[in-house]
Computed example of a mutant assay.
Amino acid sequence: MRLRYTTLVVDDYDAAITFFVDVLGFELVEDSPATTSTTGAAKRWVVVRPPGADTGLLLARADGERQRAAVGDQFAGRVGHFLEVDDAAAEYERLVALGVEFEGPPRVEAYGTVAVFRDVAGNRWDLLSGP
Rank of each mutant, 00 (worst) to 15 (best):
M1Q: 14
M1I: 10
R4S: 13
Y5E: 12
T7D: 13
V10N: 06
D11Y: 07
Y13H: 14
D14S: 14
A15Q: 03
A16N: 01
T18N: 12
F19M: 08
F19A: 01
F19V: 08
F20D: 05
D22G: 03
F26S: 06
E27L: 05
V29S: 12
V29Q: 07
D31S: 10
A34D: 15
T35Y: 08
T39Q: 09
T39R: 07
A41W: 03
A41I: 03
A41F: 03
V48G: 06
R49T: 07
R49V: 13
P50N: 00
P51F: 05
D54G: 13
T55Q: 12
T55R: 05
T55F: 08
G56M: 11
R61V: 15
D63I: 12
G64E: 02
E65A: 15
R68S: 09
R68F: 09
G72M: 08
G72E: 12
D73S: 09
R78I: 04
V79Q: 01
G80N: 03
F82S: 07
F82E: 13
L83H: 12
A90I: 03
E93Q: 10
R94Y: 09
V96K: 05
A97H: 03
L98I: 01
G99V: 02
V100Q: 07
E101P: 01
E101G: 00
E103C: 02
P105M: 06
R107G: 13
V108T: 15
Y111A: 03
V116H: 02
D119F: 08
A121N: 11
G122E: 13
N123Y: 02
N123A: 10
D126I: 04
S129G: 13
